[in-house]
Design a protein around this nucleic acid. Structure first.
Lengths: 140, 140
DNA sequence: TTTGAAAATTGGCCTAA
DNA sequence: TTAGGCCAATTTTCAAA
C-alpha cells in the first residue's frame, strides 16, 4: 500500500468499472502497473469485491430502513447470521452503541417492511427489540 | 425492468466488473442483449454507478462508526450537506427514527474518530447531539 | 516496461415481434 | 417502437519476455 495504490482505490471507489488503461493514463503510469497493483490488492483482501450502486426506488424498493436489533447475549451470533440469509437484508453489521446489530433492509413499501420486520425476522428466536429508521434520502 | 434486468443487476451487485460476455453466458443470452440492457438501466438512473468494496482495516482505517446526528430543525439540511464534504464521512442518510441524520465514518483509530466527531464535525453550527456506534464486524 | 495475441467493448445497421 | 442479432473497428486485458 503506497500512494499510488491509494490513488487507484480512490478512482475505483467512484468508477469501479473504469478500464485500467484509463486509470493508468490518469496516474501517468502503465496499464500493466495498474493491473498488477489491483490484482495484488485483491489477493491481499484490500479490495473485497466490485459492486453496482442501484437506486432502490427505481426497481420498486420504495422503502429502505436502517434497522437496529437487540438480542439476548447468548443468541447474538445466531441472530446476526440468520439476518444475513434474508434477501431483503442488504447489509448486516455488529456494533456497539444503541443496538448490537445494525442492518439495511429494502422493501417494496411500508406494508412489506412491516411484514419483513415483524413476521419474517421478528420471529427469530432471541430478538428482543426491533428499531427501524426509514431512510428519507441518501446524500452521499 | 423485467426478470432479465433483475438477474443482470443481481450479478453486477456481487461482481460489478464481470464482462458482459460472461454475464451473457451465465444467463444464456447474447452479449449485445446484456450490454444494451445495462446501458438502458444506466440511462434510466437504475444503475447509479460502480464501486469497489474495500476492507477499511487493511488500509489503516481501523475504526468505522455508524454515527447519528441530531440538529436544530432549521439547520438540518445545512448540516447534512456539510457532513458530505468530509472525506472521512463515507455515507450520509437523512432518516426518521432516533436520529435525523445517519452517517458512516472511517477513522484510523479511536483518537482520530474522536477528533473528527468532536473537533471537526462537532463544531458545525446546529448540531445538538452526536451518537457514534462503532462497527465491530460487517457480516454482509 | 514493452509487445503481441486473445478477449471484450462499442457503434451501426439490420430483422422481427 | 423496441429488443436483440450480427459484424467490423477499436479498446482493453493478459501473459510472457
Amino acid at each position: 500500500m503506497d500512494e499510488k495504490d491509494m490513488k487507484i482505490l480512490n478512482i475505483l471507489m467512484r468508477e469501479g468499472r473504469k478500464p485500467y488503461t484509463e486509470i493508468a493514463k490518469e496516474l501517468r503510469t502503465s496499464e500493466s502497473s495498474v493491473r498488477k497493483r489491483v490484482r495484488k490488492m485483491e489477493e491481499e483482501g484490500i479490495i473485497k469485491g466490485y459492486n453496482i450502486n442501484i437506486e432502490p426506488s427505481k426497481i420498486g424498493y420504495n422503502v429502505v430502513a436502517l434497522t437496529g436489533f437487540d438480542t439476548n447475549p447468548e443468541d447474538f451470533l445466531t441472530v446476526a447470521n440468520k439476518l444475513c440469509e434474508f434477501e431483503e437484508v442488504k447489509k448486516v453489521w455488529t456494533s456497539t452503541g444503541d443496538h448490537m446489530i445494525m442492518t439495511e433492509i429494502w422493501a417494496k413499501d411500508g406494508r412489506e417492511l412491516s411484514n419483513i420486520l415483524f413476521n419474517k425476522i421478528g420471529k427469530i428466536e432471541g430478538i428482543k427489540k426491533v428499531c427501524p429508521a426509514i431512510i428519507l434520502e441518501q446524500l452521499k
